[in-house]
Amino acid sequence: MVDKATEIKSVKVDGTPARGSFIQAVAAVVWKDLRAEFRSRELFSAMLVFSLLIILIFNFALELDVKTRRSVTAGVLWATFAFAGTLGLNRSMAIEKDRGCMDGLLLAPVDRSAIYFGKVISNLIFMLIVEVIVLPVYSALYAINLFQPGLILVILLGSIGYVSVGTLLSAMSVQTRTRDILLPILLFPVAIPVLLAAVKASNGFLTGAEWAEILLPLNLLIAYDVIFIAVAFMVFDHVVEE
């Protein structure tokens, strides 16, 4: 991972104003994650296969006949995204830690929150790519049209909230002794409000509920996203300090 260090350095060397350099630093973190992933594809393929397997397991576990399908689709989708997301979050931080990239990132003269937002965005991109593939597969397998603009908006908002807490917690959990098992235990109970609002809103769109009924969970989802991002942004410095 030599290229990453040089990239960060190049961001700093050209001496752009502070605001621009912050965005550039975020972009550099995202870019190095995407490039590394594009080369190995280990994270993405694991998340994708895992989420397809979860859908299969739900098929056996719930006997998804036409009638129950309608009512449980939102729950199955979000459970799938949550599990696959944990896998990705864990791996993406563990890579940083194992290859010593985290130390390199921390040595780089950029704001710590730039690292946080960079990781959030790259994790979000991975999660969204997986979701973009899972949605048509699910639609085809269970003959439900999931391509509704409202549902996609909910999935985007829910993923943002989930990833923003998840990135913070995975940065913590990789620094512990029990790191492989700790992330879901830490993340799930804290992320429940986001998942709850997301499931409710998705369910509203899938069952064709009235707009007023969907608006409440949607607003809650946006509020939770803002709250979690704000808190994570404020405390991230304490997670990575040495």
């Binding site: 620094q175 409000p193 808190v231």
Partner: peptide, 20 residues
């Protein structure tokens, strides 16, 4: 530090869950 962050997140998340 980690404990404090998690307790803070938890203390925030629990009322949000209840509210939701």
């Amino acid at each position: 530090s980690f404990g404090a962050i998690y307790a803070l997140l938890g203390g925030l998340s629990a009322p949000l869950t209840f509210f939701a």
